[in-house]
């Protein structure tokens, strides 16, 4: 066959605790990210994404501890995003057991952080986040601070720049769709995916299994990220794989 389309559940973590977490299994501690990661590992998730939304800088190390404890018991690839500003931040996460780090705001302020990380640790671990809003027909702009702050930077140009600087993957999130359950911004994902030679993960807005399939068939993504449809037990990872396969796409069995 060929490389499988990846289904990636994403857990938001603040101060070492899961926010809006999983409730489809009996958990001893519903806020423990490690226990939730294990549930997804057992369910056959293709990768896991932790998004660290810890606001205070003093508590940044809590995510390192989460990654270390996750790596002891989960044997799937883990990407960690949120708060990665320097190559040393990336190193701490990678040495704790993360396989990839996602960089967003820092790469807006200083795109060279992408080449710093790629040069030291390899492009394969360097995921560049593209958080964008539609500003005109066929045009998107990079927004920071959870989608509140416009930057004036064109999303496609930014994506091309970060790919050239050595990103090994792009995580493309529509800040218009995030949390809406209306589906990905397929035009945004496709515009970027068709323009770069590295893999693209579609993110933001998944409300059902058809949205995952569309992310690939119409968005041309190589991986599909979602949160709530998995966390609340509406759909399992196996159902997501089945839906992809039913659409003629390669997915794990």
């Amino acid at each position: 066959m060929t490389v499988r389309i990846r289904v990636i559940p994403c857990l938001d973590v603040a101060n070492g605790r899961v926010v809006k977490g999983v409730n489809f299994v009996d958990l001893q501690d519903a806020g423990d990210p490690v226990e939730q990661a294990q549930a997804y590992d057992a369910a056959g998730a293709d990768e896991l994404c932790f998004l660290d939304i810890t606001a205070s800088h003093e508590k940044r190390d809590t995510i390192i501890d989460v990654v270390r404890r996750t790596a002891e018991v989960c044997f799937m690839p883990v990407t960690v995003g949120g708060g990665v500003r320097t190559a040393d931040d990336a190193r701490a996460l990678l040495m704790a057991g993360a396989d990839k780090v996602a960089v967003n705001s820092a790469a807006v302020a200083r795109p060279e952080v992408v080449s710093d990380i790629a040069t030291r640790f390899g492009s394969q671990c360097m995921v560049a986040s593209i958080d964008a809003r539609r500003v005109a027909e066929g045009r998107w702009e990079i927004f920071t601070h959870g989608g509140r702050t416009p930057t004036g930077i064109d999303a496609l140009e930014h994506a091309l720049r970060l790919a050239k600087l050595g990103a090994g993957e792009l995580l493309v999130t529509s800040m218009d769709r995030d949390g809406t359950r209306d589906g990905y911004d397929l035009e945004l994902v496709r515009t970027i995916a068709d323009a770069v030679s590295i893999p693209v993960v579609a993110s933001g807005g998944v409300g059902n299994l058809d949205h995952l399939v569309e992310g690939v068939t119409r968005g041309h993504a190589n991986a599909v990220l979602a949160a709530s449809i998995f966390h609340f037990g509406e759909h399992s990872i196996a159902e997501a794989h089945d839906a992809l396969r039913a659409a003629g796409l390669p997915a794990r069995t």
Binding site: V3, P199, A223
Partner: peptide, 13 residues
Amino acid sequence: DERIKIPHMGWND
């Protein structure tokens, strides 16, 4: 085929 993405990233045979 230039549509093939590099790095080779994910589950495969």
